[in-house]
Computed example of a mutant assay.
Amino acid sequence: MYILALSGNLLMLLLITMEPRLHNPMYYFLSSLSLTDLVLSSSIALKMFCIFWFKNKDIHFLSCLVQMFFIHCFTSLESGVLLAMAFDRYMAICSPLHYTSALTSSLIVKIVVTLVIRGTIIVMPCPWMASRLPYCRSHHIPHSYCDHMAVVKLACTDITINSAYGLTVVLIVIVFDVSGIAVSYFLILRAVLRLSSKNAKNKAFGTCTSHLCIILLFYTLGLFSFLTHRVGHIAPYIHVIMSNLYLLIPPTLNPIIYGVKTQEIRTAALHLFIRTAY
């Protein structure tokens, strides 16, 4: 899955960079999603290879905190990029005449930078607070990567503040982003249903299908991973597997789903392979 995620997202970035027809807001946001997926999947997969292949199950505490930051920061960034892509679809369908003039390259850069800053600011306190906890019990994390709650549960002190802050971060990201995505698609649905042409309706729905599949996949797996830390009892190996899939399935499937559903990407890939063959 990691090899597929790596090759698929690198190919997506290559196609968007080389093909002038893909130089528009939708594909700029898609390239941001691919970059985010590359960092997110690499944050866990490289260490997992060391665990499974070389039996190297140790990780330095500082490295653990760095991994924690990257995982949660880029998870927040991916959620924000999905929100930005929903806004992009809203502009393309509901206000097509102002699409390219409103979503300029400078605005897209500002949106992405703002999302990076948001993720950094809200996630940075998590590893900082975790680093100040006393760990006098076992240092064994029943996980394949340094998830925030998996680490702080090892502390031999009250972790209410850490748990509450982690919950607050998740709620801020999910409530804000999911609400924005829901509003965008409500307005899109309302605009599409007003179209008189059946072909226009089908085309509008077709451009949003791939995005909705990715949104449902990302938030469903993320919600499961989040809830298993706080409610209910689930077998540890199931929790570990599902948490890994949460960070590996979206990066693996995102380029595949967009490649299959988007004609421009399929055409650009075909042209690339033909040029390479000759």
Rank of each mutant, 00 (worst) to 15 (best):
T36D: 07
A84I: 03
S144L: 10
I59M: 15
S34C: 12
L82Y: 01
S31D: 13
S210N: 11
A182W: 06
L253S: 11
R194Y: 00
A102I: 05
A277S: 15
K110Y: 07
V192M: 04
N24C: 14
A155W: 02
N162A: 09
P127G: 11
L22N: 00
I108T: 15
V231E: 09
V66R: 00
L154S: 06
D88E: 10
I108R: 12
V81P: 06
R190C: 03
I234M: 01
S79D: 14
I249T: 09
N244V: 04
Y2S: 04
R132G: 08
V183Q: 10
Y99S: 07
L82E: 05
E19R: 03
S131I: 05
V183H: 05
L189K: 01
L6T: 09
V183D: 06
Y185L: 01
H229F: 15
S196E: 04
L221N: 11
T104F: 10
L11P: 10
K110F: 08
I117Q: 04
L221A: 12
Y185A: 08
Q67P: 07
C50K: 03
L195D: 00
A164Q: 11
H143G: 12
I257T: 12
F273R: 14
C50E: 10
L115Q: 08
N24M: 13
L46P: 09
G119R: 10
S184L: 12
V151Y: 14
M149K: 08
I59Y: 09
H139C: 14
P250Q: 13
N254R: 01
D37L: 02
I44Q: 15
L272S: 06
H23Q: 15
K198H: 04
L115K: 05
K261C: 10
L83I: 04
L13M: 11
I174Q: 06
H60I: 13
L115I: 08
L115Y: 00
I215E: 04
A182D: 05
V152K: 09
G119P: 00
E19I: 01
L115P: 03
R230C: 10
L189Q: 04
M242F: 00
L167F: 11
L115N: 03
C208Y: 08
C146L: 05
T207W: 06
N244K: 01
L245F: 09
L217C: 14
L13G: 07
I71S: 02
I174F: 14
K57P: 03
G206S: 15
S42Y: 13
